[in-house]
């Protein structure tokens, strides 16, 4: 099991965003999370990637406990030093790409492996160029983010996440900020990664894509996991009324 999140609770101010959510992801699994906005999907990803602190629950990567609340009080995270290593277990691709505008494309991809993971510069850059080639951006290594289209920027962001050799990759609505004609090139890359057995958790509004690429689909609403299972089952014959309603709205 690569990721085990159990009994995660999270609230902002007075608003309970995650009610006792549990999510396990197996190696090679592709999980899509769908649901209306405000359902807690993104917060769940942000908790898994430590951008938000959980109120209670347990997060484990590779069986190692990273955060837990043993006495039900404040969550205990691993000390900062060890978190650097933990962060190499996963990568996160943002809706808004969040590339570093002052770094060239290649440096965006290679800077963290070199300066955070302290890997050999030549090797990292060679790998970086390979990744960019795989993303169809071999000729953009020396360009700057502002010179790229949104779709190209998002592919750089994926390469940047992959450069750290993560065991699991999270996508937070990776195509929502893109013009419709550019979503295809990003989805193609994710599909390609799925074929290579990359473990991925994808928060998305692209229903047909989620249906096609994922092994498991989770439908979240109001901070709860309402339904999950095989995509054919969830999309084709959902058992919960709320799921049906959501999908119906989506098809209109």
């Amino acid at each position: 099991m690569i990721l085990e999140m159990s009994n995660i609770k999270k609230h902002f101010e007075d608003c309970e965003v995650l009610h006792d959510i549990s999510l396990n992801v197996d190696s090679g699994e592709v999980v899509s999370i769908i649901g209306p906005s405000g359902s807690g999907k993104s917060t769940l990803l942000r908790c898994a990637t430590f951008l938000e602190k959980i109120d209670s629950g347990t997060i484990k990567y590779e069986g190692q406990t990273i955060a837990h609340t043993p006495d039900g009080e404040k969550p205990i995270y691993l000390p900062k030093k060890e978190m650097v290593k933990v962060k190499s277990y996963f990568g996160l691709v943002f809706q808004q790409f969040n590339l570093f505008p002052h770094f060239s494309v290649l440096r965006n991809v290679c800077d963290a492996p070199i300066n955070v993971q302290k890997r050999n510069k030549e090797e990292v850059e060679e790998k970086g160029r390979e990744l960019l080639a795989k993303m169809g951006l071999a000729d953009k290594a020396d360009a700057y983010p502002f010179q790229l289209s949104g779709g190209q920027q998002q592919r750089v962001a994926i390469a940047r996440a992959l450069a750290l050799n993560p065991d699991i990759l999270f996508f937070d609505e990776p195509t929502s900020a893109l013009d419709p004609e550019l979503t295809g090139e990003v989805l193609k890359i994710i599909r390609q990664l799925a074929e290579e057995k990359m473990t991925m958790v994808i928060v998305t509004h692209e229903m047909s894509f989620a249906r096609a690429v994922s092994k498991r689909v989770i439908f979240m609403d109001g901070g709860y996991i309402v339904e999950q299972g095989d995509p054919e089952k969830v999309f084709g014959d959902p058992s919960e009324e709320r799921t049906k309603q959501f999908l119906r709205n989506y098809q209109q």
């Binding site: 990637t49 430590f50 951008l51 900062k80 978190m83 650097v84 962060k87 190499s88 996963f90 990568g91 996160l92 943002f94 808004q96 969040n98 590339l99 570093f100 505008p101 002052h102 800077d111 963290a112 300066n115 955070v116 993971q117 940047r160 750290l164």
Partner: peptide, 26 residues
């Protein structure tokens, strides 16, 4: 933008590295 801090955090940069390498030049 908050996203710059978040991207750096996820990539494992320390707070000091984030400030000096990512934030300050911009």
């Amino acid at each position: 933008a908050k996203g710059q801090y978040e991207a750096a955090a996820v990539l494992g940069y320390t707070k000091t590295q984030t400030f000096l390498k990512i934030i300050l030049p911009q």
